[in-house]
Write a protein that binds this DNA or RNA. Structure first.
Lengths: 226, 226
DNA sequence: TTTTATTTTTAGATTTGCCTAAAATTTATT
DNA sequence: AATAAATTTTAGGCAAATCTAAAAATAAAA
């Protein structure tokens, strides 16, 4: 049950894409992994071989139970390491993704469970994403995109969708981070951009693209695990 | 200046072999890495190509300055991670080698320097081996092999030579670890084995092979860095 | 429903790191 | 010094993970 870094990356990316769309396509996965469709197809065959994937050619694919388990473990490792980097090594929350991307492929189970204990079993990583527990249970987050937040309603940032360094840097610049309380002052129907107000700061305008990637707490939030 | 895990392993192994013998041979390196001489030759060519190695075919080899620097960095990473695993995650000192073998290949400079700071700039790893500083300076240890310790002279264990899990497990069993004070009670010229006495314990017999790998403080120990 | 466009897969290369078997070179022994 | 033994390198192959270019299948448009 030890998979190559490349396989783990594919599993993880498929898992994330599945969250949004039920079924995943070759092109979407290639885009997510910054690789070529042909390379994806090659890997799909190997993952199917190992029964990590439900896949028939030309028909899209999804993870098997086994594959999902493996993907969630990688995500657990990634998020625990991110937490470690920010909370113990004082990295900024927008600097840790790349490093965690390497650390997530370290094998030892024992290591990750001890790290988890050392960190005090944190529930979310520095970006607000939930950390799967050692049984592979992933808490469901009740959150909505900032784009869908009603006007003049204060909400708290609870996560970031797609986390490119550029995006994180930009949010950082606008003092928008995990836990930040903000509200929408105005919507510009022309391009769906938003004027957003953060406490003690001048209002800033965010593009629809950015707003879609900022997640905020929904009214009733739950932490049941599924 | 980022090298593959396999290259880093070769560099590290060459560095260690160089400490003992000045020049390194293909067979010795193959043995150290549990690989085949032919594979070593392949890698030597690549390392030479990258100017990490001074090497002419059939004539042995040693690291270039560049190669030495890279090797020392890997060693620094390995030993800092070992320290982290033992001191922060409560692993036993005989369990950490394999995990550190993976962690040592994580790239980020920033990461390792922050880890170093987080750990309080430790001088030695849990086996007593010195940790190179961020400039790549490696403290010289003044130590001798247990085999060379005079009879009835108490000395303190300050390092372990070749650290196979089996060896570490055995030493652990005999309550011989870093810092343990011990003395040689008797030498058996037949096979050069030793009867060794540790405080509060019945005497144990160690083979010459084991004794050679246990390092103890020499009388005058220094910590100058070279 | 043909035709066109898009998506996906196959075919065939390439690179890295390793292997075995055989050849070349060096070292040791008679 | 000639032969035997050991060491080291070359030659040729294999598996993993990627790529490009071309073919096959599916989806969209005329």
């Amino acid at each position: 049950m030890k998979y190559s870094a490349s396989k783990e990356n594919h599993l993880k990316a498929i898992f994330h894409l599945q969250q949004e769309q039920g079924i995943v396509t070759t092109n979407a996965l290639a885009a997510a992994l910054q690789t070529r469709p042909a390379s994806v197809t090659d890997m799909l065959k190997k993952l199917k071989e190992q029964k990590l994937l439900l896949y028939e050619r030309y028909k899209g694919f999804r993870l098997s139970n086994e594959g999902r388990k493996a993907a969630v473990l990688v995500i657990r490792k990634h998020r625990l390491w991110e937490y470690f980097l920010v909370k113990k090594l004082q990295f900024g929350w927008d600097e840790v993704h790349v490093i965690a991307e390497e650390l997530e492929h370290i094998g030892s189970r024992e290591l990750i469970d001890r790290l988890d204990a050392f960190l005090g079993h944190p529930e979310t990583d520095p970006h607000g994403d939930p950390i799967p527990d050692s049984q592979g249970r992933l808490p469901v987050k009740r959150q909505v995109s900032l784009s869908d937040l009603p006007l003049n309603k204060v909400a708290q940032v609870s996560g970031i969708g797609s986390q490119t360094p550029e995006m994180l840097e930009m949010l950082n610049y606008h003092h928008i981070r995990l836990g930040t309380r903000l509200e929408i002052r105005k919507r510009f129907p022309f391009d769906d951009s938003l004027e957003v107000k953060v406490r003690n700061r001048p209002p800033v305008t965010l593009s629809a693209r950015v707003a879609k990637n900022v997640l905020v707490n929904d009214d009733e939030q739950g932490t049941e695990r599924r």
